[in-house]
Amino acid sequence: MSDEVKKFLYVNRKAPYGSIYALESLEVVLIGAAFEQEVSLAFLDDGVFQLTKGQDTKEIGVKNFSPTYRALGDYDVTKLYVEEESLKERGLGIDDLQYLTYEDEDDDYKEKPSIKVVSRKEMADIMAEQDIILSF
């Protein structure tokens, strides 16, 4: 394999728990993090629901994997793009999402936010910059 670093974008467009997509995506991201590529995550359409805070799955008998998004920083996954229009269309705002952070090794391990809200137009630009797009 070449040692060239590629830009990977994981595109998340489905709400968690209704299907296996969200969890599968998260697991692939965690496994893929070992390959030290340039990884970012996109959340649009119903995918924005993956990041909401206050998820409680006790009554549906499924594991709540929302705390795992908070571990992404440890795995050097520090760029999570959330589409503003998708949030708005669903009556959501940034305050409905978990506050996710990472420690910036190049900046004295300062804690910085991982989530960046972007417009639909910016999301399209981000998609067009990638080498590899993985859709979930």
């Binding site: 965690l30 993090a33 070992a34 594991k63 709540n64 994997f65 705390p67 795992t68 908070r70 571990a71 440890d74 795995y75």
Partner: peptide, 18 residues
């Protein structure tokens, strides 16, 4: 503690770093 907080067991390099 890590599992309690994040619901996953960390990968080796993450474990060692932490």
């Amino acid at each position: 503690d890590y599992y309690e907080e994040y619901q996953i067991a960390p990968a080796v390099r993450v474990l060692i770093k932490a």
